[in-house]
Design a protein around this nucleic acid. Sequence first.
RNA 1: CGGGACGUAGCGCAGUCCGGUAGCGCACCUGAAUGGGGUUCAGGGGGUCGCGGGUUCAAAUCCCGCCGUCCCGACCA
Length: 489
Amino acid sequence: MADDKKLTTRQADFSAWYNELVLRSELADYSPVRGCMVIRPNGYGIWERMQRALDGMFKATGHENAYFPLFIPESFMHKEAEHVEGFAPELAVVTHGGGKELEEPLVVRPTSETIIYSMYAKWVQSYRDLPIRINQWANVVRWEMRTRLFLRTMEFLWQEGHTAHATHDEAEEETRLILGIYREFMEQWMAMPVVTGLKTQSEKFAGALRTYGCEAMMQDNKALQAGTSHNLGQNFAKAFDLKFQGESGAIEHAWNTSWGVSTRLVGGLVMTHGDDNGLRTPPRLAPIEVVVVPIWKSDEERARLLEAAARLRDHLTGWGGRGDDRIRVRIDSREGIKPGAKYYEWELRGVPLRVELGPRDLEKNACVAARRDRREKVTLPLDGLAPAIGALLEDIQVSMLAAARARREANSIREPVTYDRFRELMEGEGAFVYAGWNGDPAVEARVKAETKATIRCLPDTEFRTTPAPQRCMVTGEPAQHEVVWARAY
RNA sequence: CGGGACGUAGCGCAGUCCGGUAGCGCACCUGAAUGGGGUUCAGGGGGUCGCGGGUUCAAAUCCCGCCGUCCCGACCA
């Protein structure tokens, strides 16, 4: 692999392509511990930008950050019946500390509902103490059988929001608010279109009343659950005695929500936008938006070009057309590497825009800008370059979303299909299949067993098909819901 | 945890059948030329052959045991 200049193509082996891309673009590397990964600066830089964007959106809607501990008393996990059942098989448990066996084992959090709601129970007495809307950025551990870089690792980074409300409707509103934030982030920042909707009972979060999710289509036409937002009802409040006295004087249990997105999103970004030359990063998430490659022959030229490149960088960085969000520029002044080799490297890493600056350009007072998304080059005058670059970056961002959306729609099936045809599709090229469902969990289970496809969601109104499907795809009975079927990661 | 494969330089591999000086490609270091889409030449460094035991004059190679990784299935953000 290290000797091959070219990546395995997506066509040849999607999964090998993905692994090679992640490793070679230095997003991440395998760790000495099975199932864990090291997130390298290139990957972490993207995650940091994701964090910054989401964090801003959470705060703008009234949430605050806090931090709860990594260790949870084992007994906490057993207090909510479905929750234990869901998470017990994948818990890491600490039984010894300081050379002694612990009286009560500590669970390494797989998610923090239990410890957070136990604390909320301490903090809430009156309806005046509500709502509580806290988010935390943390790592969690789930003992997974099979792992894949970013998509499923035993330890991963995420944010988990946990709120407590006085009424069901307020909790529901919060759940939907967050789903909308996720969708906006995924579309506007990641340029990754998603279908939002309700999860079925079998796919919902362990312990939730209802789960909503964002489903994105990867380039192999499989679905990636990119984010979830749960209305927990009063399940955890009852388990952890989270009660308050209402205006009327009555004691009631609070209503909770929880929601999260993880470093899995980085994997989603790769599988949404990557091509056979490497990663393509949407500008808004790119740690480096513009890489300047100066080209020279002689030492004299080198000095001249490096100086011109620095001026160009300062010009771009100094531009205020995006307010405080300055264009992120890097100059690649490395010697001994030919420009062509630099081009390939930065393309592999997904930098959205490359600016080539050589003696010929300087003479014309111009430069060449090459956009990563379409691998197209344009010559731009150096005078007034910044606004032009700003506009190009904006166009790349918008084009990437449009291209991803077009690809998803091209691989979505909304006409009625027979179950046989459906099975063929799932065995073959894959798709998002919109179809009627009779609402029976047994049908869902059967389809999963027979095709590995699952109901990704009951899509929200704006994603539904008109006219609505009348019949269940599997049984032919009247449809209770329209659902989206797909194989998923 | 069931089925399959593999473990030799940083990475990818050959060598194992048939025991006899540990090799190749890429990467890396040095020097020179080169430089607008993956440069070329010359020189160089780097290995307890997964671990433990056994057989043998001699083990990467044969035998036994262990460990680990990857792929396919059941579970999952």
